[in-house]
Write a protein that binds this DNA or RNA. Structure first.
Length: 421
RNA sequence: GUGAGUGUAGCUCAAUUGGUAGAGCACUGGACUGUGGCUCCAGCGGUCGAGGGUUCAAUCCCCUUCACUCACCCCA
């Protein structure tokens, strides 16, 4: 094989795509019930949009973006996530002037240059939702409840919704300093990575998986103890509303998200049935992002679902590929010719038809019809041509009848209960 | 970027202490001159990932390389 797909990307073939379509249908339905409207934004943006929103010191910006230069010298990046482009569009089209709250959802591919592994691809698909304009904790809970509904609708088990609060620009610095002070004593215990992270982004040390780092932060100060009154009240209200909505969750004071723009409520939906990459969906509040990107001071909250990960959790047995209603079997060249306009006519009536193009024996054509799981087979040979009729075989009942070729579409439409046009 | 594992027929996998490969599924035909799902028979199908080395001889041993997979890292 000479040319193959680029490392870390994959084709979604018939047989698997049905699962994706199913997820998309269900998710769109629920999103729209909650008042979210679809937005489609480009898959590339000026690099600056991502470096400013995601954060210069994050791995995504530092080493995972697909960036190239335009002729003018401006740098362009294939989007590594969806929130920044949506917020950019929100500002650019001044959607904040149309309504106090703007609820948007998107779905499409994201790109990150990472080493591929189970559940991690270089082009991966997300369904995301963003609610902009309101900072009420009730909205946070509603967004989480919506996510919960989506996974319940898809009947996915073994998921744990973990939530935390990262505080705001008033209380986070205090916590950050307290954590840094604590980590200073533990410095020798930290992994190389975390030692360098201490100055730049100490919160990330909290969810490092290295054993010694885990030990080091075991008694570290936790964020909830440092939240300001406003943030604490907000977080309490989120939890209270989640209980009212009967959304089960667990709090994880060590939950830190990778992107810089998160504030207050953050969350992850983690599966026990996946490999190392077990986060199915994640998100949080980002009250400073719109302003940071040049818009008016506007709060926001959102999440993204990883399609590949979600799809791998869905039982595939209930999905079937495109099944034709009718298979047309022919015997002889004359029959093959006669059948061409018949097939065309049936298809124009909306009846799915398949036939043989290879000159197979009748036996093989029957086998093929069976493989297609066709409900009926139309058999046309020399005898039928002479009589001006066709044989219609019911594959399930194993019966067949002879019908006048002129009544064919009517008879089929009646059998298949297709309304006349 | 680092580490480990795996590359043999379209697919899933065997085998040979080194003597150039086999099964199941799939596909095609036949048993059943024009009728499916079961059965039986036959056929089709392989540069044994690629390149080099050792050897009389390499799919097997050695080196290099490529690809895939999983994990670290990171994250959806």
């Amino acid at each position: 094989m000479n040319i193959q797909a680029i490392k870390g990307v994959k084709d979604i073939l018939p047989g698997e795509i049905e699962v994706w379509q199913y997820i998309e249908d269900k998710a769109k339905n629920i999103l729209e019930t909650y008042g979210f409207s679809e937005i489609r934004v480009p898959i590339f943006e000026y690099t600056e949009l991502f470096s400013r929103s995601i954060g210069e010191t994050t791995d995504i910006v530092e080493k995972e973006m697909y960036t190239f230069e335009e002729s003018a010298g401006k740098k362009i990046t294939l989007r590594p996530e969806g929130t920044a482009p949506v917020v950019r569009a929100y500002i650019e089209h001044q959607l904040y002037n149309k309504s106090h709250i703007t609820k948007l959802y998107y779905l499409g591919p994201m790109f990150r240059h990472e080493r591929p592994q189970a559940g991690r691809y270089r082009q991966f698909y997300q369904i995301g939702a963003e609610a902009l304009g309101i900072d009420s904790p009730v909205l946070d809970a509603e967004v989480l409840s919506m996510l919960d509904n989506i996974i319940k609708e898809l009947d996915i088990q073994g998921l744990d919704l973990q939530i935390n609060s990262l505080g705001c620009k008033d209380c986070r610095p205090g916590y950050r300093e307290a954590l840094k002070g604590f980590l200073k004593d533990k410095f020798p215990m930290l992994c190389e990575n975390c030692q360098s992270r201490m100055e730049r982004n100490p919160l990330r040390v909290l969810d490092c998986k290295s054993r010694t780092c885990k030990e080091a932060v075991a008694n570290a100060p936790i964020i909830p103890d440092y939240l300001c009154g406003h943030c604490k009240e907000h977080f309490d209200k989120v939890k209270e509303t989640l209980k009212t909505l009967k959304v089960s969750f667990s709090t994880n004071p060590r939950l830190v998200r990778g992107l810089d723009y998160y504030t207050k409520t953050t969350f992850e939906l983690v599966s026990t049935n996946l490999g190392a990459q077990n986060t199915v969906a994640a998100g949080g509040r980002y009250d400073g992002l719109v302003e940071e990107l040049g818009g008016p001071k506007t709060p926001g909250i959102g999440f993204a679902i990883g399609m590949e990960r979600l799809a791998s959790l869905i039982k595939k047995d209930k999905f079937r590929t495109n099944i034709p209603y009718i298979f047309i079997a022919t015997i002889g060249d004359e029959a093959k010719g006669i059948v061409i306009p018949i097939i065309d006519g049936l298809r124009k009536k909306g009846i799915k038809v398949e036939t043989d193009y290879e000159g197979l024996s009748l036996k093989s054509q029957m086998r093929k019809a069976d493989k297609f799981q066709a409900r009926y087979v139309l058999i046309i040979g020399e005898d039928e041509i002479k009589k001006g009729s066709v044989l219609l075989r019911d594959m399930e009942k194993k019966t067949q009848e002879e019908i006048d070729i002129n009544n064919l579409t009517e008879v089929l439409a009646a059998k298949l209960m297709i309304p006349a046009k």
